[in-house]
């Protein structure tokens, strides 16, 4: 019994990290139709922000999370302004341009911060284990889980209840008509891209104490996020959440039975088979393909 519970908690922890990484990707894709290949590098930037702040100012993780969000959001905003903005009519080319951005970010970090692995300290008050339902669970993983739920709720409220969210949904549905109603679509796009990037930054900051920080840490993270987006579809936040939960649990289980690599491969083949029968993801409304 406790083994099963342990496995479920591991899966939940994997799923919450996965969700944090893929949420930004899904939001950006859902709104603009842009797959941001630099998303993994945004995660990496978030992790390096924490490392930098800890090393130079000795900050605790919590303030670092806030700084990571805004720093990476600013980077995302800049990239949208300078590059992505000009390519909205050529969706395939946004992949290429953001891939170029990811190369530059990766190499830029390698040249400035060094190519060696960096380590980030876990805050003291989160480094012990807490008993939950008779199973010892790392407090840090619970912290990630709770924070993910909070961020998810915040994102939902942002989209459903604010003026910005209202404009965002309008622009997503029909850009031209919403512009006729005085919504500044360009500004909405920039903000959304920045918000998605900021979420990736927080994800990176949260992963940092669990794994080592390196310039190419983003690649692995973003591949899992692709799987989530492909499987969940982009119609709703729910799709992303459900698919992150499923992939997190399944890969946790497979990694336990085999190893991480085999788990990744099996999840990939599972997703490929799934899209043959549900091309628009598991949570999409059937629409006429235009």
């Amino acid at each position: 019994m406790s083994d099963i519970l342990n496995q479920v908690f591991t899966g939940l922890s994997l799923a919450s990290i996965l969700l944090l990484v893929s949420l930004g990707l899904a939001i950006i894709y859902g709104t603009m139709g842009v797959i941001n290949l630099a998303h993994g590098e945004f995660v990496m930037l978030g992790a390096y922000t924490v490392w930098f702040l800890q090393k130079n100012f000795g900050l605790d993780l919590l303030p670092c999370l806030v700084v990571s969000f805004f720093a990476v959001a600013a980077a995302g905003w800049l990239i949208e302004r300078l590059i992505v903005r000009h390519l909205y009519k050529r969706p395939l080319d946004t992949i290429l341009a953001t891939w170029g951005v990811s190369v530059i970010l990766q190499q830029g970090i390698r040249l400035t911060a060094g190519a060696e692995l960096r380590y980030v300290k876990m805050p003291g008050w989160l480094s012990n284990a807490v008993p939950v339902l008779g199973v010892e669970v790392s407090a840090y993983r619970i912290f990630i889980f709770v924070l993910t739920l909070l961020l998810l709720a915040a994102t939902y409220l942002l989209f459903a209840r604010t003026r910005y969210g209202f404009s965002l949904r309008a622009v997503t549905q029909n850009q031209e008509v919403s512009r006729c109603f005085g919504i500044n679509a360009a500004r909405v796009y920039s903000l959304t891209f920045a918000y998605g990037a900021g979420l990736a930054g927080v994800a990176g900051a949260l992963i940092a104490p669990l794994k080592s920080v390196s310039p190419d840490m983003g690649t692995g993270a973003v591949i899992d996020a692709f799987m989530v987006v492909v499987m969940g579809g982009v119609a709703s936040l729910m799709g992303t959440v459900a698919s992150a939960a499923i992939i997190g649990q399944v890969s946790g289980l497979l990694a336990f039975v085999y190893n991480d690599t085999v788990a990744k491969a099996l999840v990939f083949f599972g997703v490929v088979i799934l899209i043959r029968f549900m091309p628009e993801g598991i949570f999409s409304v059937r629409v006429r393909r235009g």
Partner: peptide, 21 residues
């Protein structure tokens, strides 16, 4: 699997990239 599911454009790109990794 992809083309019969009418997956095109950016999704083909990220699925092939995922396969590579």
């Amino acid at each position: 699997f992809m083309f019969r599911g009418r997956i095109t454009g950016v999704f083909v790109a990220i699925i092939t990239l995922a396969m590579l990794v």
